[in-house]
Amino acid sequence: MYHFDPANELGDKSRRELIQRIIDGQATDEEQKWFDDSVTDCSNCECRSYCIQVSALKDIIRENVEKKKAPADLLDTIKKKIKS
């Protein structure tokens, strides 16, 4: 079973993947704890910088991209199609 060891030196790719998982809410508790303990307060850290960028990008997408609603007649059209 995978065990996350904070003492391990992670490569750049692993760090980016880990941070992406954290920002996307898909990190394990262990990974989240490591991040909270090690990265959140690190003011001169590439991990933190990358984290800020990806978080900002997600926020921008959520806040600015309109979620299109289905046209009013689509539901009836679908119901008619499956009943025909």
């Binding site: 299109k68 609603k69 289905a70 689509l74 539901l75 059209t77 679908i78 499956i82």
Partner: peptide, 28 residues
Amino acid sequence: HLDSVYNFAFRVTYDEEIAKDLVQESYY
């Protein structure tokens, strides 16, 4: 899930009519 499915269809096709057809066909 119709709104979400339609939104996905619209975001991949950029066209409301094509998105509608795609959603109809997918639901069928």
